[in-house]
Simulated assay, not measured.
Amino acid sequence: MLYGTPRLEAIDRKVLDEIEEMRRDLKYRLAETHRWDGQLRRQLQARAIQGSNSIEGYRASVEDVESIMSGEEPLETSARVAREIAGYQQALTYIQLLSRAAVFRFDAGLLHGLNFMMIGHHPDKTPGTVRSGGIYVRNSATGEVVYEGPEAERVPGLLDELVSWLNEGDLDAPGYVRAAMAHFNLVGIHPWRDGNGRMSRALQTLVLGRDQITTPEFCSIEEWLGEGRNTYDYYDALGARQRRSWDPHDDMLHWVRFCLRAHHMQAQRVRRRLAEAGEVWMLLEEQVDAEGLNTRAVSALYEVFVNRRLRRSRYQADESLSQGQAARDLRELAAKGWLRPYGETKGRFYAPGPRMQAIKDDFAGRITPLRDPCR
């Protein structure tokens, strides 16, 4: 028996309608191709990877996550954390492909495979195979057991039940609700020795991706869940309904409401970023054109607008340039006050120069707070 899908109330349907309206608007805007789309998608995926891993204590900057995604050595992140980031990226990349697959069904093998992608670098944790013993979640500060997973011999049957539900259960429920329940049930079963939290959040993203609402990077709430106080609220929402052990019940509305609020807040943020991307790109194009610079330089300037730093190799790959062309462009942008270089050789990167910082400060002053749909 799994945890049951709750019946929504009027306030929940109102929040859900607003989420779906924002997602439809995003889908409409994304139907038209823009120069900044690729970078925006990459940044959203990097933030989702950063958020989900930070919940587990694997912390890395967005810039280092992007470096790891492109196969580069990160500037600050340890090799241990970089392996976790790379494994999670591999799984999310596969989820992106599965979201668009013409033929698809959930099965236990898929879930085991995704777990192996995430933690395959930990052979001692038997990645991709059902745990053989009990499992406990502890409070990292006190060591107290806050949740005990179901007995190991029950796990295969529970996974089969979850897979059957993913394919056939509650199909009339909104996708956001089904995704939330998939997340909760998988993390409750806790089928593997490691990676259960990340797998559950990734499964939530996959369920939404299969709904074809928007692509996974635009519908994930992993960034939101991984931020500061939100992470504590996330643990509180899980704990309030898990009741310390596997004990399926139908009183899940509080959990679903938590997830709907997270989707609403993240959708506001993504919509704002998409609108901002267009405005910033056009502004930078005007500046580059006025100074007689090559239009491709906008790509480099946009990268340092949204992130703290840019590496030559990323700009080179984004614009399909030779090493010499990319280096010359960045030197020219630094000479004109757009960028500021730091470091040497492989550790060299470019941060916003005074002219770019002025634009960043101007946009930062215009940002309006997100609206909490539950208040």
Rank of each mutant, 00 (worst) to 15 (best):
E222S: 14
T368W: 04
S299N: 13
T345A: 14
W246Y: 14
L301E: 01
T5E: 12
L274T: 13
L75A: 13
A262C: 13
V288W: 06
L171Y: 11
G120T: 06
D64G: 08
V146K: 04
D25N: 11
R29C: 02
E32M: 07
A86L: 10
Q204C: 03
L110I: 10
A358C: 06
V306W: 08
Q316V: 05
R198C: 04
C374L: 04
A297K: 03
E72L: 08
T33M: 08
L301S: 02
R243E: 14
R35H: 06
R83Q: 11
G347A: 14
L260R: 00
G38Y: 07
I19C: 03
G134R: 09
D172L: 03
A46T: 00
G226L: 10
A237R: 07
A317H: 08
V146P: 02
L2G: 01
R131M: 15
R271Q: 15
Y136N: 02
Q323V: 12
E285T: 10
H249V: 04
N167S: 05
R244I: 09
N307M: 05
A262H: 00
E151L: 11
Y94P: 00
R257K: 09
V304M: 05
Q45E: 14
W36E: 15
G353A: 08
M252A: 04
S70W: 03
A10M: 09
R309N: 05
N139M: 12
K336E: 14
W36K: 04
Y232Q: 08
D37T: 15
L40Y: 00
L208Q: 09
R178M: 06
E9D: 10
G128Y: 12
N230F: 09
A91S: 13
L208D: 00
L321I: 07
L171G: 02
A277C: 03
C259N: 11
F258C: 01
T368N: 05
H121M: 06
S67R: 13
A327Q: 09
Y136S: 07
R271C: 08
